[in-house]
C-alpha cells in the first residue's frame, strides 16, 4: 500500500473528454507504462430522515482496488471501513436513510503500471444519464507510506505526463502529510473531488 494522489485534470474548451483521455493514455504508453486492467470508483449518497441527526449525509464508496471493502463516509469526516455486506445493511436502514436519487457518481477507466507507480485515468460520470463531467487522474507510489516524504517525488512524476496542473497537495492530503497512509485516505480524496464536481454541475443547472 503506497501513497495516492488524486488530481483533477482540466478539460480545455472545445475538446471532448475522450480525446483528452486518449492523449494522456498515449503519453503514458510512450513513457513505457503497461496496461493492467480497468478500475472503478463509485459513490452513492444517502440522506438522513432521523430527527436526531437532521440533514446528515452518508456517502457509500467502493474502490475496485479494494474489492471486498465498502467505505462509509459521513459529512463530519468519519470514515468507516467495512465488509461488502454493509451495503445490505444500508438497505435495511432505508426507512431512516433513503437513497438520494440521481446522486450516483463514478470514475472509471484504464489502470497502468510503470515501475513502482500505478496510474489510473478515470472519466467521471454523473447520475442516471451518464453525462461526462471531468477527468480524475490517480497516481500511486507503492514503496513509500508517508505522503510528506514523497510528495515532491510524485509531483515531479505527475509533471512528466500531466504538465503543471498539480502545484500543491489537495486540502485533505495536507492534513495527512506525516501519518501513515491508508486506503480510506484515497477514498476521502475521491469524495472531495466528487463534491467539487457536484457543486459545479449544480451551479451549471441553475
Amino acid at each position: 500500500m503506497g501513497v495516492v494522489c488524486v488530481a483533477s485534470y482540466p478539460v480545455p474548451e472545445g475538446k471532448s473528454g475522450q480525446q483528452i483521455v486518449d492523449v494522456l493514455q498515449s503519453r503514458l504508453e510512450q513513457l513505457g507504462a503497461e496496461k493492467s486492467g480497468q478500475f472503478n470508483v463509485d459513490c452513492e449518497t444517502y440522506q438522513s430522515q432521523v430527527p436526531s441527526a437532521q440533514n446528515r449525509l452518508v456517502h457509500l464508496l467502493h474502490n475496485s482496488e479494494q474489492p471486498a471493502t465498502c467505505f462509509a463516509v459521513l459529512d463530519t469526516g468519519t470514515c468507516l471501513v467495512a465488509d461488502n455486506l454493509f451495503n445490505l445493511l444500508m438497505l435495511k436502514l432505508k426507512n431512516f436513510y433513503p437513497t438520494r436519487k440521481g446522486f450516483k457518481i463514478e470514475s472509471k477507466g484504464q489502470r497502468y503500471s510503470l515501475g513502482d507507480f500505478i496510474i489510473k485515468i478515470g472519466s467521471v460520470t454523473f447520475g442516471q444519464n451518464i453525462s461526462f463531467k471531468g477527468i480524475l487522474v490517480e497516481v500511486e507510489y507503492c514503496p513509500c507510506m508517508v505522503p510528506g516524504d514523497c510528495w515532491d517525488l510524485m509531483k515531479e512524476f505527475m509533471q512528466g505526463f500531466m504538465g503543471n496542473c498539480v502545484e500543491n497537495p489537495s486540502n485533505y492530503l495536507k492534513t495527512k502529510m506525516d501519518i501513515m497512509y491508508t486506503p480510506a485516505d484515497t477514498i476521502q480524496q475521491y469524495l472531495e473531488h466528487f463534491k467539487t464536481f457536484r457543486k459545479e454541475s449544480l451551479a451549471v443547472t441553475r
Partner: peptide
C-alpha cells in the same frame, strides 16, 4: 442476520449517524 466486520471507529460513526 447480517454480520459486517468494520474498522474501530464504529461507535463514533453510529453516534454521528443518529444512533443512540
Amino acid at each position: 442476520s447480517i454480520d459486517v466486520g468494520t474498522s474501530d471507529n464504529l461507535v463514533q460513526f453510529l453516534t454521528e449517524m443518529g444512533f443512540r
